[in-house]
Amino acid sequence: MKFRLLHLIRPALFAVPFLIFSCGEDEDPVDSEPNLVVVEEQFEVNAAYEDTDLLTLDILQSSGLGTRTQSEADICANTVVEHNEGAKKITIDFGAGCTSPKGVERKGKVILTYSGTNFLQPTTSIVTTFEGYEVNGIKIEGSRTLTNAGFNILTSSLILNVKIENGKLTWPDNSFAIYTSTQSRVLTLGSAGYQISITGTSSGKSREGVDYTALVTDPLIVDQECVRTGVFIPSAGKLDFVVQGITITADLGSGTCDKTVTVSYPGGSRELTMD
Rank of each mutant, 00 (worst) to 15 (best):
V210L: 00
A73S: 12
T256H: 04
T79Q: 11
E40W: 00
G103F: 13
L160T: 10
V39N: 05
G97Y: 08
K89M: 13
T128R: 15
S264N: 05
G167L: 01
H7K: 06
S202G: 10
P172I: 09
T262H: 07
S181L: 14
L220P: 03
M1V: 14
T199H: 00
I198G: 00
Q244N: 13
S115I: 06
A177W: 03
D258F: 02
G190T: 13
V243I: 13
I140W: 04
Q224E: 15
I111H: 05
D173H: 06
S191V: 11
V263W: 01
F94R: 03
D258P: 03
N35H: 03
Y212P: 08
E225W: 05
A177F: 03
T229Q: 12
T145L: 14
R106N: 13
I221V: 15
T129I: 04
C257H: 06
Y114C: 09
K88E: 14
V210Q: 07
G209L: 07
R68E: 12
I20F: 02
D173W: 02
F176L: 14
V186Y: 02
V110C: 02
D28R: 02
V81L: 12
G97L: 09
N35P: 00
L54A: 06
F241K: 02
L252K: 04
V222A: 08
K102Y: 03
L65S: 04
L158W: 10
G132S: 14
E208A: 13
K259Q: 03
N152A: 10
L65R: 04
S184Q: 15
F241N: 09
T124V: 13
V16E: 14
